[in-house]
Amino acid sequence: MAATTEEPQRSAPLRDVIRDALRTRIFEGHYAPGTRMVERDLAAEFNVSRLPVREALRMLQQEGLITERATRGSVVTGLDEKDVDDLFHVRIALEVLACRLAAERATADDLERLRTLLDGAAEALARGNLADAHRLNSEFHDELTRIADNTFLKTALEPLQGRMHWLFRHVRSLPELLEEHRDLLAAIASGDPDRAARQSAHHIEKYREQYPDTV
């Protein structure tokens, strides 16, 4: 299969290029849960040695998007109903804290960066580019964690990031999600940690109710 436009520029390390391309394909459903990720085949597809493919798969495994099975090797991870429920419990605990801290610590530049991400998502949506809209909405959440500026919180969220982003892709309405994010930004910009925490909890609970039993 020839290289696609989903792949980042080759100025990045090969392992990152391959990881990003495979992650995008997983997010967009090109690789269903249970799909085998064969090093040899992927190396041939990307026209590289097996080493950067192995490193990319290891990185995706750390994100929870790939599982290593004794009998089948590397396979795309699936999330069942309990996995989704467990992930949302952790998400609401950690993201509400991130938003509370962001309301306390966000600078004018931080708030402008958040607005730029949401404006970019709206523009992508208007163009019909759903992949970019999803990506920018995911980056909005990542930016909140950066603004929170808590090393232990960041460390706790990093192993979940891949699965979080995967779940973000399953929202029913991107325009509605964008408005939810604008409300969350307004709460953070108010500088009121309690308001930001309430808005974050509302946002997460609302989307938990919309998820299918399995993803």
Rank of each mutant, 00 (worst) to 15 (best):
E45N: 12
V84M: 09
G120D: 06
L57E: 06
V38F: 06
R91M: 02
G128P: 05
R91K: 07
R40Q: 08
E39D: 08
L111V: 11
D80P: 06
D80W: 07
Q62S: 07
L118M: 10
D109M: 03
D83K: 00
F88K: 03
L87V: 01
E123N: 04
P33F: 12
L114C: 12
L111T: 09
R113L: 03
L117N: 06
E81P: 00
S49P: 00
R135Y: 15
R146N: 11
A43Y: 12
A122D: 14
D80S: 02
V96Q: 07
Q61A: 13
M37C: 05
L57D: 04
A44R: 12
A126L: 14
H141P: 03
N129D: 14
L114Q: 14
Q61I: 03
G64D: 01
A102V: 10
L136P: 04
V96H: 00
S74Q: 08
R105H: 02
R146S: 10
G128L: 07
N47D: 13
R113N: 05
D110G: 04
L97A: 00
R54S: 15
E95W: 09
T116Y: 09
T77N: 02
T145P: 00
A122F: 05
A108W: 07
A124L: 04
S138G: 15
A56H: 03
R58P: 07
V75C: 02
V76S: 06
P52I: 13
A103V: 09
P33R: 08
L136N: 11
R72A: 10
V38I: 13
D109V: 07
L101V: 11
E45G: 08
G73F: 01
E112T: 08
A103L: 05
R40I: 08
E68T: 01
A56F: 01
F140T: 10
L87D: 01
R127H: 14
G78S: 02
D149V: 11
D119P: 02
N129P: 06
N129R: 10
L51T: 11
V84D: 01
D132M: 14
R54Y: 14
F140N: 09
M37V: 04
E139M: 15
E63H: 10
L111M: 11
L65Y: 10
G120L: 10
D109S: 12
V90E: 02
A124G: 05
E123Y: 07
T77P: 01
R113G: 04
L117I: 06
D142Q: 15
E63V: 09
A133D: 08
R91T: 01
T145D: 03
L97S: 01
